[in-house]
Design a protein around this nucleic acid. Structure first.
Lengths: 234, 234
DNA sequence: TCCGATAATTAGTCTAGGCTAATTCGGTCC
DNA sequence: GGACCGAATTAGCCTAGACTAATTATCGGA
């Protein structure tokens, strides 16, 4: 297991984040996500390809090899364990810990990571609801839908808040949209793009824009199908 | 407060470590301590001098400015708080945590450091007994002597184990030489370089070499003076 | 006073990982 | 089929912080 630089780790993580299923990712998308120029990406992809961590077909994008995927999942694991620790042990706000975890994930030794993992009880989910890969890189797969895709009458449980900026996470938290919260869709007005929800027994009215990134698990036996905007009848 | 790179922080720390009292430090000593070549040191000192963190008189060594000293003490504080955390919260072995703290001290945000400091109860000493500077950079000064300097009959309390390699710390720990332990000098045979000590009521026989770096606070009313190798009479 | 040993500095390279400017490729549209 | 457009790559540069080799300053002793 060859040591990777911080940049290399960041690139692998980015490829994984943009294509968790192993699809090819375009140079420009990586550049955008990492905040670097496209030539820098091409350059680093060449390096990672030489190390057999990605397969890079010029002008057709890059995809992770099995080894690259393993390393990427390792970083995801580190990140999520650290976030859990920062929230549960240090008492930091979960809307706030991303940046710290982002730095620390590259610099914590396996020994310290192991001790932290033990301390927080080997969690399977981080504070935003994201699953934590195990040491072998296996991720529990879940069937999640964007909350905005639910139809009227659906019941669901919030499972993940996909990384977003701090104010948005803060907003969701205030609205009660936290992992584990129960949600019921009261009304959907597609033309107005307005959703009326009950979140933990409180009424929330919002546009679909405000729900972007809230992923839910649909509860069995909703009155209507979970897909599509749904009709008007109860 | 201008951000410093990791290397800059390391150089400042090294200057402080080699001259806590503010004396000038030779290029070669810094090179040796940091494991870099002397030209690298000259180079970095020029940079730090430009930032007014050290005063560098060519061929006469470098000394910290007030600002440089403040930054150095900040790193010392970070390091020691982290070591305390790694031992007390994560349960790692105190002979073992130096390297981890050495890396993390550069990458932990003030927010996380503050939370860790709170969690461990704002300690004044790290696990090796070193005093932890407060936020304003003040260090509690103590009067410490090397254990090997004590005369026969002296009583003292172990206060610090100055950074050494892991096996040596491990050895001291096994011998009971830990911060807070009481020591009584039973016999000193300067010609043989042999010390016989009672450490926490257990007998320890060792050469002065094996005591290098063990710093103690002498207890009031020892039968003989604490300085010098001492005579042969009780 | 001058000489030599030793420490320090200067000069010039190297690597990682960025950047901009210029070029090339591949797909789309006429 | 050819021209064009945008994305990607190549070419060339920059900075931090290392390095080695060459040069210079300083200090102690004869």
């Amino acid at each position: 297991m060859q040591a990777l630089t911080r940049s290399e780790q960041d690139y692998l993580k980015a490829v994984y984040a943009l294509a968790p299923g192993g699809e090819a990712v375009a140079t420009s998308r990586l550049a955008e996500r990492l905040g670097v120029s496209p030539p820098s990406v091409t350059n680093m992809l060449a390096k990672l390809a030489a190390a057999r961590l990605v397969a890079h077909t010029p002008r057709a994008g890059a995809r992770l090899t099995a080894r690259g995927r393993k390393r990427a999942l390792e970083m995801v694991r580190r990140h999520r364990i650290l976030e859990t620790f920062l929230v549960r042990v240090l008492g930091l706000d979960w809307a706030d810990v991303h940046a710290d975890a982002e730095v620390l994930e590259h610099h914590i030794s396996d020994r310290v990571l192991g001790a932290i993992d033990r301390l927080v009880g080997h969690p399977h989910e981080d504070p935003h609801g994201h699953p934590i890969p195990d040491r072998r890189g296996r991720v529990r797969r879940r069937v999640l839908l964007p909350l905005a895709k639910l139809g009227r009458g659906s019941r669901a449980v919030v499972r993940e808040l996909r990384d977003a900026d701090r104010p948005r996470l803060e907003h969701w938290k205030n609205a009660g949209l936290v992992p584990g919260a129960e949600v019921r869709v009261r009304q959907v007005r597609p033309l107005d793009d307005v959703f009326e929800l009950d979140v933990a027994h409180r009424r929330l009215v919002t546009g679909s824009e405000g729900l972007e990134g809230v992923m839910v698990e649909v509860q069995k036996g909703p009155p209507r199908g979970a897909h599509g905007p749904g009709g008007r009848a109860a």
